[in-house]
Amino acid sequence: MSELFYAGGLIAIVSTLLVIVQSNVVHALIYLVLSLLAVAVVFFSLGAPFVALLEAIVYAGAIMVLFLFVVMMLNLGQASRDQERAWLPPRVWIVPCTLVLVLLGMLLPQIFEIAAVTNSPFVEVGVKAVSAELFGPYVLAVELGSFLLLAGLISAYHIAKR
């Protein structure tokens, strides 16, 4: 299982890096789908099969199809790809990358220091345990999630209307 975790993690990092350097929107979307599927593999290797399936169905399926529809509606052609290349000279990457590398340099040693204290193997948590939690103590959060989705539906309809 741990080989699955490391392979999935490596593919996720590489394909996510490719997402943010692309100039073609559709290529970036395909790489994002690959990245989300790799994260789904990571979830599966961590013993969370229910969440892995949801990641593949909802994230890589539904949300990415939504993105694809909008990209099709916008109908961006060669001109936008050239514009995108003109917006991305190598020097614009310097400041964000430096800032984020400083943040990571602070964060990663902390993570490795704290986690070294408690080191136990992962155990599988199946659908039944998740459902029992979801419709037991967290039933109010589920209701609030449905409110949020309804609000998102209505506001997306209103905003995208002419």
Partner: peptide, 14 residues
């Protein structure tokens, strides 16, 4: 079940 250290998963997320 599997022997993946916690810090590797959190580091991947980071």
């Amino acid at each position: 079940m599997s022997l993946i250290p916690l810090e590797h998963g959190i580091a991947l997320a980071g």
